[in-house]
Nucleic acid binder design. Structure first.
Lengths: 150, 150
DNA sequence: GCTGAAACGGTCATGAC
DNA sequence: GTCATGACCGTTTCAGC
């Protein structure tokens, strides 16, 4: 993972469809050398996946919400984590320091969808308490990259 | 934006390097028809960009932090927004409901980097107050897609 | 939106350093 | 071990329908 690998990842992040020749011109390497580096970066996990950033609104998900979750004392934390991984509306789930257990980022078609999601958390007895903040606008946002089939 | 466009975006999100023929097989369309749809989805902004998801740790950014920001009463909010857009360590910036003005997601090489970032916010007189939470682990996280040159 | 042909680009074997 | 060259072949692209 040297400076060249770094540059390659930056170039791919901007546009992962540029040709190996283009990238090679940017890092003074032949297409095949670039290809080999990309193969290694992908194999090592430095590049997780080639994907598209979509506009959540275009996908019918105009509401972005952040939910602070305090897990119920008797809840199964491993179960919560796998729950989070299987719900496509959760685009992020972080175990964080501070008074809350987890921070979730949710994409939803409507506020009613957020309410329904909170109901699900309650039904499954994960929640001790929670706090929800709605994103009004997002000057910087990676958007949405659907995991699974939505 | 019909069901087929939706499916195409989902398939591209999983792996945007699959061939038009592969995608076509998944949606019962010819490669050229798929290509035309992708072109339209990109032109309309439904697909923002073709990119790679990188592992922040591999890029030397093992620390993920969320910073709640309350803007100083006399601060220039437009300036804060463009500041946020130009700082590569900010991977998300959301204007949110609730007691705080903004939520930032930061990738940093170290805790010292977070401290330095907070100092910058103070120096620029953006901050009334802030609260920082460090991500301990992330069961669901899109990772990092470098904007700009880092 | 499909078909078919042409241009392009990714891939891999080979050889140099 | 890493990289460049060049030929092969799958893929994208575009014209015509």
């Amino acid at each position: 993972m040297d400076r060249i690998d770094h540059k390659i990842i930056t170039l791919l992040a901007e546009d992962c469809r540029r040709s190996l020749a283009d990238i090679g011109a940017g890092v003074n390497l032949s297409p095949s050398a670039v290809n080999e580096r990309i193969r290694r970066l992908t194999a090592s996990g430095a590049i997780r996946r080639f994907t598209v950033e979509a506009d959540p609104e275009a996908l019918g998900l105009p509401v972005t919400a952040f939910i602070w979750v305090a897990l119920a004392p008797d809840s199964d934390e491993a179960a919560f984590r796998s729950f989070a991984q299987t719900r496509p509306e959760i685009s992020e789930c972080h175990h964080v320091t501070g008074p809350w257990s987890y921070l979730l980022k949710i994409h939803s078609p409507s506020l009613a969808g957020i309410e329904a999601f909170l109901s699900t958390l309650k039904e499954r007895r994960f929640l001790a308490r929670s706090e929800t903040m709605i994103a009004l606008s997002s000057p910087v946002d990676p958007g949405f990259s659907p995991r699974g089939d939505l």
